[in-house]
């Protein structure tokens, strides 16, 4: 049994282009726990994941993010990852000519970890997650389909075994089979390898397989309600509007979704999606 670790997010505020997106997020995740954070498009969910990981696009203006009491917010992205944080991205980036094995190998090298059996482990995870062998020979994510990218993110997560994994809409772009493969693997990592999981989603279907311990409703840049798995059922019935009405909240989003936006597609077209959120 590995030691228990604690990811603590306290009063986290973040802005993009001086517009406040995160408005005081509080959350604690322990290793081995699965948390689902559910919110509509434009509620700031992706901002939370990137603020945790330290993307230069977002400015944290207040609050704290720590693992076992060690503050992460002053650290560059790669050091946060080395402290045990992993972000499975909503839009995994294509890196031509750098295969997945090279990425994971370099990540292990940087941690001073061994590359022993790396190739076999990756091949095994790829089979479990339905990533075709030929994709392993390409640059990571390069000309992968949306679903293949999510599967490949999960392969990296499984091999790197971080303390905490933030899954940013890992379900978007996945068909039913892929969703089941990915969710089952993440569930196993949490239960068997004690990975603490924060699954960010706006769609309840992920939760059937992921079986979260805790569910959080995220509206307009903060968590407005937390509960057990039954909260997801309530959400299914009432929708975000229902929860907002129940809590007397007017505002659901901090970012206006683009007109005609595909609810399961990219709500943030462009390099700086939040540049002018009120336009």
């Amino acid at each position: 049994m590995t030691a228990e670790h604690l990811l603590r997010i306290t009063d986290l505020h973040a802005t993009v282009a001086r517009h406040e997106i995160l408005r005081g997020v509080d959350l604690e995740v322990r290793t081995g726990e699965v948390h689902a954070l559910m919110g509509p498009n434009g509620s700031g969910k992706s901002t939370l994941s990137h603020a945790l990981m330290g993307s230069g696009e977002y400015e944290v203006t207040r609050g704290s993010v720590s693992i076992d009491g060690e503050e992460l917010l002053g650290l560059p992205t790669w050091q946060r990852a080395q402290r045990g944080l992993f972000l499975a991205m909503q839009y995994p980036v294509e890196v031509p000519g750098v295969p997945l094995e090279e990425v994971v190998g370099a990540a292990l090298d940087a941690r001073g970890a061994s590359r022993a059996d790396l190739h076999d482990r990756i091949v095994a995870e790829a089979r479990t997650l339905g990533v075709p062998d030929e994709l392993l020979g390409r640059g990571v994510n390069t000309e992968f389909s949306g679903g293949e990218k999510k599967r490949a993110e999960t392969v990296q997560l499984a091999v790197l075994e971080p303390k905490f994994a933030v899954l940013d809409e890992i379900d978007s772009g996945l068909d039913v089979d892929a969703l089941r493969d990915v969710a089952r693997r993440v569930y196993a990592l949490a239960r068997e390898r004690q990975v603490g999981v924060l699954a960010i989603t706006h769609y309840a279907r992920l939760l059937a397989e992921l079986r979260p311990d805790r569910v959080h409703v995220f509206l307009a840049g903060r968590i407005v309600k937390s509960g057990g798995p039954e909260l997801a059922d309530e959400l299914e019935r009432t929708g975000y509007e229902g929860i907002a009405a129940e809590l007397g909240i007017d505002e659901l989003t901090v970012v206006q979704p683009l007109p005609d936006a595909d609810p399961f597609g990219d709500p943030t077209i462009g390099s700086n999606p939040f540049a002018d959120p009120l336009a």
Binding site: M53, S55, G56, P76, T77, W78, A81, Q82, F86, L87, M89, P92, V93, E94, V95, P96, G97, V98, E102, V103, V104, A106, A107, D109, A110, R111, G139, Q156, L160
Partner: peptide, 29 residues
């Protein structure tokens, strides 16, 4: 590309190493 750097750094790879991988990857084909 900043996004490529961020992606590799999010795996725990230091920026110098990420840059090395990206440059070599760029020439790979």
């Amino acid at each position: 590309d900043d996004e490529q750097l961020y992606y590799l750094e999010s795996r725990g790879i230091p920026p110098e190493e990420a840059e090395r991988l990206i440059v070599l990857g760029f020439f790979d084909d």
